[in-house]
Simulated scan of single mutants.
Amino acid sequence: MTRTVHPIEQESFRILRARLDTSHLPPLRRAVLERVIHASADLAYATDLVADEDELRSAHAALHAGAPVVADVEMVAAGITARRAVCRLPDASACAGLTRSAHAVRLAYAEVGPGAVWVIGCAPTALEELIALDAAPALVVGMPVGFVGAAESKAHLRASGLPAVSNVSEKGGSAVAAAALNALLYTHHPVKENDR
């Protein structure tokens, strides 16, 4: 199914590319960065976003082969427009020293198992729980926002060795996390680097 792109979105990307040259980036990293900037109108993501092209390629293949997508909160799930995302937050409760978000990660992992793509845009505790679970994800989009634990949880994600998209600063949130995943879903046939 071909996605129809509205003229306003086309103009937004034209303006973005006029202000920031992304042409030197590999195709999936470029797609993710541009979609995150488009969702946030924040050009600083050009130096804040961390993503590896090989990891993005593997995740892209997994997504297009039907890997499940898990979102930490319903706002992230609602922003993922090309795929239904599992979100177990409504079923979770704070218990046994876990936040509700961390419990939701455990519930979701019990449902989807290894190989899923996880999108965390709200709760640092959800990201920390996912790292601790050893869930063997295809990719973790870890972009929680906030002054308490957000930057630290993203640093833990990058240090974990899990395939990931993250950012260095405290900023992030549901919209940018969903945008990063949407970039991979909307890109059907990424150009190989040596074909550019």
Results as ranks from 00 to 15, higher is better:
residue 85 A to I: 09
residue 85 A to C: 13
residue 86 V to T: 09
residue 87 C to T: 13
residue 87 C to Q: 08
residue 88 R to Q: 13
residue 88 R to S: 09
residue 88 R to I: 04
residue 89 L to Q: 12
residue 90 P to W: 15
residue 90 P to N: 14
residue 92 A to I: 06
residue 92 A to D: 00
residue 92 A to G: 02
residue 93 S to L: 13
residue 93 S to M: 10
residue 94 A to P: 12
residue 94 A to Y: 05
residue 94 A to F: 12
residue 94 A to K: 11
residue 94 A to Q: 10
residue 94 A to T: 15
residue 95 C to T: 14
residue 95 C to G: 07
residue 95 C to Y: 06
residue 96 A to E: 15
residue 96 A to S: 15
residue 96 A to F: 13
residue 96 A to Q: 15
residue 97 G to Q: 13
residue 97 G to L: 05
residue 97 G to T: 06
residue 97 G to I: 13
residue 97 G to K: 12
residue 97 G to N: 09
residue 98 L to C: 00
residue 98 L to N: 04
residue 98 L to S: 02
residue 98 L to G: 03
residue 99 T to L: 11
residue 99 T to K: 05
residue 99 T to Y: 07
residue 100 R to W: 04
residue 100 R to C: 03
residue 100 R to Q: 09
residue 101 S to Y: 11
residue 102 A to N: 12
residue 102 A to Y: 05
residue 102 A to G: 14
residue 102 A to I: 04
residue 103 H to V: 00
residue 103 H to I: 01
residue 103 H to M: 09
residue 103 H to K: 02
residue 103 H to Q: 10
residue 104 A to D: 07
residue 105 V to Y: 00
residue 105 V to C: 01
residue 105 V to F: 00
residue 105 V to H: 01
residue 105 V to G: 00
residue 106 R to D: 13
residue 106 R to M: 09
residue 106 R to N: 11
residue 106 R to W: 08
residue 106 R to K: 15
residue 107 L to N: 08
residue 107 L to R: 09
residue 107 L to M: 09
residue 108 A to V: 06
residue 108 A to S: 14
residue 109 Y to H: 15
residue 109 Y to V: 12
residue 109 Y to W: 14
residue 110 A to K: 14
residue 111 E to P: 06
residue 111 E to H: 14
residue 111 E to G: 08
residue 111 E to Y: 10
residue 111 E to I: 06
residue 111 E to T: 09
residue 112 V to D: 11
residue 112 V to M: 10
residue 112 V to G: 11
residue 112 V to S: 12
residue 113 G to P: 07
residue 113 G to Q: 05
residue 113 G to E: 10
residue 113 G to C: 13
residue 113 G to N: 08
residue 114 P to N: 06
residue 114 P to S: 12
residue 114 P to E: 14
residue 115 G to S: 10
residue 115 G to R: 11
residue 115 G to C: 14
residue 115 G to E: 10
residue 116 A to K: 05
residue 116 A to D: 01
residue 116 A to Q: 05
residue 116 A to T: 04
residue 116 A to L: 06
residue 116 A to Y: 01
residue 116 A to N: 03
residue 117 V to M: 07
residue 117 V to A: 03
residue 117 V to I: 09
residue 117 V to C: 04
residue 117 V to Y: 04
residue 117 V to S: 05
residue 118 W to K: 00
residue 118 W to N: 03
residue 118 W to T: 01
residue 118 W to P: 00
residue 120 I to H: 03
residue 120 I to D: 12
residue 121 G to R: 14
residue 121 G to V: 10
residue 121 G to N: 13
residue 121 G to K: 12
